[in-house]
Design a protein around this nucleic acid. Structure first.
Lengths: 230, 230
DNA sequence: GGAACGCTTCGGTGGACGCCGAAATGTCCC
DNA sequence: GGGACATTTCGGCGTCCACCGAAGCGTTCC
């Protein structure tokens, strides 16, 4: 039975600067305590608490208790996907000062987008895998048999990703590059593998990633990808 | 340069029932005059006008003058795509009464989703084309060479779709079926062809579609698809 | 047990905005 | 040109809500 969708609750949840900031902070898939979110957004703890309960009620964010902290994170992959596609419409938030533009630069190089690799690293890998026939399609991304073999060889849990309930592959439109990169269960598996194998390391407290020497070496030898800029 | 996205403007645009209703009405890709939108949403003309200007300012909707009418329509495919992915999160809007549930039923059978076929017709065609190797992928949809040949044969402007600036293929998650169906430039071309060839006809004033006898026959003989339910 | 800490709830305030009717603007028809 | 019609603009009203500080609740550490 098809019905119209009521966008009011979700819309209201997105409609204030503080909540928008919270969501941007959580887009890397991390869980953060309420106080940290409050401080970053520049609102009092009580205000932040109210905002967070709105986001939870709207189903965008979940909360888990850990001792005297409460960690908030995005409610799931569909939420990240929806925010990404909204991001294509939304204006870029104002950034001020050198420090934030430095941050913007390294985010453009490599970052986590909820649970998969994004930035020049993400689009570069995706392009390389399309060229080598591991992924099919230009705008949409389907895993080929050759791709399954190849990714398995570098230790990506391909079978777990295929068996997962969520979509195996999904193309996520990169805000920076305006080009698709691999998301979905397989994108998540690739991201986990890159992190666990030490090919990328998380920048302290953020979405930014550093590509390690081992990561660059792998990209160059395995897929002919030059990541000196990333 | 990656920046955070400011969701406030878009969120605010979505955050009232009247505006949500407007967007739902425009999701079929039609352009409608302000008065009709006002009446359907149950608000005064002046209120509707204010709402519409908010939607235009947020970039979700465009307006074109036609004599003394002003026709409003969705601003583009990215808007439809964003609303679709938001729709996965949003609750179904309350429907009341028999008349609306009848409407819901025929919408579930076949409808336009912005510019491509959706409902059981849309997912049925997509599934059939994946089975016959015209489209590759399970969750994402890439056009194969065989698909290009086959669709060209039934009169779909495949080459125009490939050359278009927007994505050739895109998987759109159906609200009814919770399964993907073909969207993007190719989905649009398929929709146009089905309409121009008389395989479907538009229900008066709405997103609903009727599959004609010729359309059913084609689906059965060409792709082994039984559309008696659609 | 008590103090420090993280977070939420409560009460109150100011501004934003959704709503309407009336008036103004613009277009069409005769 | 005048009257009907579609739409927008304006003025005003009522409500909702973002915000803060203070108080309350639960956890941790000594």
């Amino acid at each position: 039975m098809t019905r119209d969708r009521d966008f009011t609750a979700v819309g209201r949840a997105l409609s204030t600067p503080a909540r928008s900031t919270f969501l941007n902070l959580l887009m890397d898939g991390t869980a953060r305590p309420a106080g940290e979110l409050a401080q970053t957004a520049g609102v009092s703890a009580s205000t932040a608490s109210e905002h967070l309960s709105v986001l939870v009620d709207a189903g965008l964010v979940t909360c888990q208790h850990r001792g005297r902290h409460r960690y908030y994170s995005l409610a799931g992959g569909e939420v990240a996907a929806a925010l990404e596609s909204l991001g294509v419409l939304a204006d870029a938030a104002p950034v001020s000062g050198f420090r934030r533009s430095r941050r913007a630069e390294y985010l453009a190089a490599a970052r986590f987008c909820y649970d998969h690799l994004a930035g020049r690293l993400g689009t570069g890998l995706t392009d390389a895998w399309v060229r080598s026939g591991w992924l099919a399609g230009r705008d949409e991304l389907a895993l080929t048999d050759a791709g399954a073999v190849g990714l398995r060889e570098v230790g990506v849990d391909v079978d777990g990703a295929v068996a997962a309930r969520r979509a195996t592959t999904r193309a996520c439109l990169d805000w920076t590059e305006r080009r698709p990169h691999l998301a979905g269960a397989l994108g998540s598996a690739v991201g986990s593998r890159f992190l666990s194998a030490g090919w990328v390391t998380r920048h302290r407290s953020g979405r930014g990633l550093d590509v390690t020497a081992a990561g660059r070496e792998l990209a160059r030898t395995a897929w002919g990808l030059d990541l000196t800029g990333a």
